[in-house]
Simulated scan of single mutants.
Amino acid sequence: MPIAGPNENGRRSPVFLVGAERSGSTMMRLMLSHHPDIAFAGESDFIVDAITPEGRFMKREAFLRMLSLDRVFGNRKLNIAQGLNFVGLANDFLDQIAATKGNPAVVGMTIHRHYDRLLHLWPDARFIHLVRDGRDVALSTIPMGWAGNMWRGIRLWVDAEENWHALSERLPDDRFITVKYENVARDAEYELRRVTDFLGLTFGPEMLRYSESSTYSSPHGDSVGKWRKADPKDLSAAEFRGARWLLQNGYLLSGTVKAPSIFRRAMFRIQDRIVIANYRRKKFGTKLWLESLIYSRFGSKKQHARIVRAQNQIIDRHLK
């Protein structure tokens, strides 16, 4: 496939790396970024958060207020140009990302949710869909404090896959490629050659050397199949919830799936809330955790903003 040139507005069509969080997107983004002709940014969900499902864009003032509390954007070091509306700012962010590589052939971002909304902004965008076994993703969300069990964790993965399915149905085959995390862990060079061919580029061996200049190690088989050690009842429930998308992505089920009882579902919900609450209390401290609970419901916007900024500072200190 040839490299896509500028569109009718004189801009290059962007490429988006999409997939559920904990699917290996940071690893893949680092690999892409190490190609001399690719400039690729990390998580940029603040873009899709400013677009409604119907395709309406945030006003500039509201977008800037949102960005002021967005931890990821705050660490991105992107400049906010004067006088541009949301569409102008989003395209300017792409230009700034491209400028880090001297206007390369490919520029893109990583997005973890609401991928379909990107077409409202960039109708000619291309996509790299990264998918990992939802059971491993589910297990991986628990230590992050995003879920209290596999039942909740795999729901996050299912949401991402449902959104991808809705988007991919609207795309011609030459506008997207699906890459499985497990295949990257097994043979990274082969998968990267597939990706660079899709992008119209030649494979660059430096893509495999990203670990030399980052804190992320090279992919390995130890990160694949950890779900096999999960509690059988938890695993069965997670497979029931994610069965359609596991099978559709080529992941075989461990056995006959069975819907958890109403009682067990209620227990999963209670466990989920308790585990997440304990995680946040330990991470942010009891005082800040309690304030976040109170001010999220009854506090002013100023109080809420103060809590978010304090939490962001703590998260940044604990980042890898």
Rank of each mutant, 00 (worst) to 15 (best):
57 F>W: 11
37 D>E: 14
52 T>S: 13
52 T>M: 07
37 D>R: 11
69 L>E: 03
47 I>P: 01
45 D>E: 07
34 H>A: 08
44 S>E: 04
46 F>K: 02
65 R>G: 15
62 A>E: 13
43 E>W: 14
62 A>N: 14
66 M>C: 04
67 L>Q: 12
53 P>I: 00
29 R>Q: 13
46 F>E: 01
59 K>G: 10
70 D>E: 12
34 H>F: 10
30 L>G: 06
53 P>S: 01
62 A>I: 07
50 A>Q: 06
30 L>N: 13
53 P>W: 00
49 D>S: 10
54 E>D: 05
31 M>I: 07
65 R>K: 15
54 E>W: 01
63 F>M: 14
52 T>Y: 05
62 A>Q: 12
67 L>F: 14
61 E>L: 08
56 R>T: 14
56 R>D: 13
38 I>P: 07
50 A>I: 01
68 S>Q: 10
61 E>D: 10
34 H>I: 01
58 M>T: 04
52 T>I: 07
63 F>T: 08
55 G>F: 09
65 R>M: 14
65 R>H: 15
64 L>E: 15
54 E>P: 02
66 M>H: 15
38 I>A: 06
31 M>H: 00
58 M>F: 07
40 F>E: 06
46 F>I: 01
32 L>K: 13
32 L>E: 13
54 E>C: 05
43 E>Q: 08
